[in-house]
């Protein structure tokens, strides 16, 4: 099979995924109503669908550790913030009760985000998820759920529940550190971080393409997976930190006669 053939044929329209996306869209449109910020929701749903039905998913299912890593990073670090951003400020959310978030809750959310990463990279759990479809679904759901928990203190729909930008920077930076350490371990660890990927069963007949055509040996594959978790993931946290800084400085500066930046930011997020 050639790369082009693979890319055009390996899409698997998973009915469960499509159905869920539609359901989410319907509930959102009915309860929260569409507005400019729904763009975030669309982006989030499109990304999750892409990552779950496109060739990336085919590769992640037992062929390439790095593809599985890409999938997970998107589901844990990119989709949840987009979903949360789409919820902010809407009238429904305002009506929900909300108090300021407690330190214990903040710690729990932080541990959820980091825990999701570390737990699923225990070699036995990683292999189990790759080989058993049921555990695999649990994995997906857990990533989305724990990702949402992680981003809650930063992007909670109700502003009272968000932590101060100063604390947000510390929160994101420490999480970045935890992610980086795991990425470093995976990049330099000897083969076998996720044993199921060492000798994939060739359901789609593309093993030759991967090994010879693209040059992906198991070592390179694991190294790439580690690097993805190390560098690009860090960029996501960095973007979060920059947005906290923008919010922090923007909150403080006001020029008379202009719409306060604070209000602008509020409208945007």
């Amino acid at each position: 099979m050639t790369t082009h053939q693979f890319l055009t044929s390996a899409w698997e329209a998973n009915p469960l995924v499509i159905a869920l996306c539609v359901v989410v869209l319907v509930i959102y449109g009915w309860r929260i109503r569409f507005s400019a910020r729904s763009g975030f929701l669309i982006a989030g749903l499109v990304l999750s669908a892409l990552v779950l039905v496109s060739p990336v998913d085919a590769l992640a299912n037992g062929y390439l550790f790095s593809a599985h890593m890409l999938q997970h990073l998107v589901l844990l670090l990119v989709v949840p913030p987009l979903i949360l951003l789409s919820l902010g400020g809407s009238s429904v959310v305002k009506r929900l009760a909300g108090r300021a978030i407690s330190p214990m809750a903040i710690l729990t959310c932080w541990l959820a985000g980091l825990g999701a990463m570390w737990i699923w990279h225990v070699p036995s759990l990683c292999s189990a998820a790759t080989q058993s479809p049921a555990i695999h679904r649990v994995q997906y759901v857990s990533l989305l759920a724990m990702g949402t928990m992680f981003w809650w203190p930063i992007l909670a729909p109700r502003r009272e529940q968000r932590i101060s930008p100063f604390a947000g920077i510390a929160y994101l930076f420490s999480a970045c550190l935890g992610c980086t350490v795991l990425g470093i371990i995976l990049t330099f660890a000897p083969l076998g971080a996720c044993p199921a990927y060492l000798s994939p069963s060739d359901r789609l007949g593309i093993l030759a393409l991967i090994r010879d055509g693209w040059g992906f040996t198991p070592e390179k594959d694991q190294q790439l997976g580690g690097l993805l978790m190390w560098v690009p993931a860090c960029m996501v946290y960095l973007a979060g930190i920059i947005s906290q800084l923008v919010r922090w400085y923007g909150e403080s500066a006001e020029e008379p006669g202009e719409v306060p930046i604070r209000v602008l930011l509020e409208r945007m997020s």
Binding site: I169, T180, V231, C234, L245, V246
Partner: peptide, 17 residues
């Protein structure tokens, strides 16, 4: 001012990567 201040933070974080 804000850009100089924020870019300082960005440099520090990136310097570890």
């Amino acid at each position: 001012y804000e850009f100089v201040a924020a870019s300082t933070v960005a440099i520090s974080i990136l310097s570890f990567g």
